[in-house]
Design a protein around this nucleic acid. Structure first.
Lengths: 196, 196
DNA sequence: GTCTATAGGTGGATAGAC
DNA sequence: GTCTATCCACCTATAGAC
């Protein structure tokens, strides 16, 4: 039950992962699948639709990195797990990260729907976890959306600085910086332990 | 005293600003300048060298946005001015921002030297300003590099979330979010006013 | 230093046969 | 639904004349 459409999608991603976006062409994808190039058009409207498969897959993979975190006991552990999962995704799947998060929206596409929907869903979960941290007194009360964006922007900014080469290229060193700086942002959200 | 090299560089940037990176080709640049395509090779080694002109120019423009901030009186005003200047650069020169900061380093280039040097210089200035804020008691004592990266990552992350369409596309609304969240990070760096 | 000419490719997409 | 054939556009880069 692996359809041709799925094979084409898989070949597109293999090509992207192996040789970069410049190497993804209808012809090369077709060659890898073992069909002619025009055959692809029976399954995808055009090249953009093909490329959007990379984003869709990247977001699925990200979800896989975040899901385990959601099973943790405390709200704070869930939040921390998501933040760590996001780092692991960026470090382990750099190409998917780049394509999903580092591509100017005007550039390849407006994958609007495919991209926006699952991504928004993931983000909503993150905001919910922040809200939980506020409700149970781990974080000081406030706007969960604002706090969530604060955290997300820091994580995103750090990872992108690393991905674009501003921190050298030692992932271990970057992990430490990421951990320390995220901790500092979290410190600012934490409720001071109530006396009495 | 506008050399042909300068005209080629200018035409490259015009083309990029008007029609995007996909439209920058040796042929089109040459056509705009009024010479033949091979003539460009007398002034630039290849296409990458031509594209690096966009990065160089983008960093010059960023410097123009940051420079006025450096003349402010207090260390904190200088820091705030740089943060605001960075936002203005990203909002007013989105194409330059994207090309300089949103392009995975493996992609178009390794413009290593051209990019790294002036950029590192700008960053060093930012770190110095943070150090000044610590020295004069505006910020709590600590590692200026770490605090600088903390701030820069937040600013960078926010701007990229906006540039990649995660905040809608209303710059005014984004300015407010940016201002509020940067303030929160700064709050965490601030020294509590000393009693006595 | 600039030109013409050209080598030697790349690519997306469609028409029409089967 | 897949094929072959093809259109038509684009590109970087070099050779060699001037």
């Amino acid at each position: 039950m692996s359809t041709l459409r799925e094979k084409i999608s898989a070949a597109t991603q293999e090509l992207y992962l192996e040789k970069g976006i410049e190497s993804v062409s209808m012809r090369k994808v077709a060659e890898r699948v073992g069909v002619s190039a025009p055959a692809i058009y029976r399954h995808f409207k055009n090249k953009n639709e093909l490329l959007s498969e990379i984003v869709v897959q990247g977001l699925k993979i990200l979800e896989g990195y975040l899901r385990p975190a959601m099973e943790a006991g405390s709200s704070f552990e869930r939040l921390r797990g998501m933040i760590d999962g996001y780092l692991d995704f960026a470090l382990n799947e750099p190409q998917y990260f780049d394509f999903a998060f580092l591509t100017p929206s005007h550039d390849i596409n407006r994958l609007a729907d495919e991209l926006a929907k699952p991504h928004a869903a993931t983000f909503r979960i993150a905001i919910d976890v922040v809200a939980d941290c506020m409700k149970d007194g781990t974080f000081i009360d406030g706007d969960p959306l604002e706090a969530g964006i604060l955290l997300w922007a820091e994580a995103h900014g750090l990872v992108i600085l690393f991905r674009t080469g501003r921190f050298g290229d030692d992932p271990q060193m970057f992990r430490q910086v990421y951990g320390r700086l995220i901790d500092r942002v979290i410190e600012g959200l934490r409720a001071v332990p109530q006396p009495g």
